[in-house]
């Protein structure tokens, strides 16, 4: 699917989807996905509602396992290992591939414990104070909360909560960070802060971000995947990956007519 092959081959693929079909029960929600996610780059998933971009995102850390009727055919490899092999422990996957959700969802614990909880259950044996400071600094939140680490994580503002969730994710030192519309519930100033943060984070992490905001994709992403919906002969809506390329190409010179219409705001 990737057309600018020279560029993508220079960087290593961290995640690779090969002929992935995703079902909910008998319903084929997403069909025939081939997609490489390059290392230490930001990849944005855009597309109209119901195209399956969040569904695919959640496949990368097996969060869809929580849905009983979910089924995946095909392969998603992480550095060559198939995430959906029988003997893969989803807990190990999620430890390496972190997730930031649409709605800020800090634990109903103190800010400090929000950071240390993941480390604790994953057997971290080190200086927790240092881990908390590092992670909060990494999420550009340290200066704002350093005097109230004992306060409940749910008592700070929405934008701060979302950065706390990012701090909680990077405290695990993951390899990949998945973000599912991380700014959808935030005001413009908080959004700006999170976007700046994404720019910093990509030096160390591979990031995939789902967004409905096309300006945001254009601002933060190196690569963009455009997902679209088609209606099958039986009248069911089915998502597919329409185009995946460098963000500039998607926004300025897309190959597909549908992409052009979507990025120029004519549907979706």
């Amino acid at each position: 699917m990737l057309s600018s092959e020279d560029t993508i081959n220079q960087t290593q693929a961290v995640l690779n989807a090969e002929n992935v079909d995703i079902y909910y029960g008998d319903f084929l929600a997403l069909k025939g996905i081939y997609m490489e996610i390059p290392k230490n780059k930001v990849t944005a998933f855009i597309g109209p509602s119901g195209c399956g971009k969040s569904t695919l995102l959640r496949c990368y850390n097996r969060l869809n396992d929580l849905i009983p009727v979910f089924k995946l055919n095909g392969k998603i490899t992480y550095h060559g290992q198939n995430l959906y092999d029988q003997d893969v422990d989803p807990v190990q996957v999620r430890r390496r591939i972190g997730m930031v959700f649409q709605k800020p969802n800090p634990f109903p614990k103190s800010i400090y414990e929000n950071i240390t909880f993941g480390a604790k259950i994953n057997g971290f044996k080190g200086d927790f104070d240092q881990l908390v400071e590092e992670s909060l600094r990494g999420a550009a939140l340290w200066e704002e909360v350093k005097d109230k680490l004992k306060q409940n994580g749910m008592s700070i503002s929405g934008g701060q909560q979302q950065r706390l969730c990012i701090a909680r994710t990077i405290a695990l030192k993951p390899d990949v960070i998945l973000m599912d519309e991380p700014c959808a519930a935030l005001d413009p100033i908080s959004t700006l802060k999170v976007e700046e943060l994404i720019h910093q984070l990509k030096e160390e992490y591979t990031i995939i971000i789902v967004t409905h905001n096309m300006q945001q994709a254009a601002r933060v992403a190196d690569y963009t995947g455009f997902f679209n919906v088609r209606v099958t002969e039986e009248g069911k809506r089915q998502g597919y990956l329409a185009e995946h390329d460098l963000t500039e190409v998607i926004f300025q010179n897309p190959k597909e007519e549908a992409t052009k219409q979507y990025v120029s705001g004519r549907f979706g």
């Binding site: 929580l66 430890r95 997730m99 994953n122």
Partner: peptide
């Protein structure tokens, strides 16, 4: 206890038991 909180816990690599005991129950 909202489903998002459970997902957050699972999302950072907690298993079912840890999620219930350390996140859902205290809340």
């Amino acid at each position: 206890v909202p489903q998002e909180v459970r997902q957050a816990s699972v999302g950072i690599g907690a298993n079912d038991f840890q999620t219930v005991l350390f996140v859902v129950m205290p809340a």
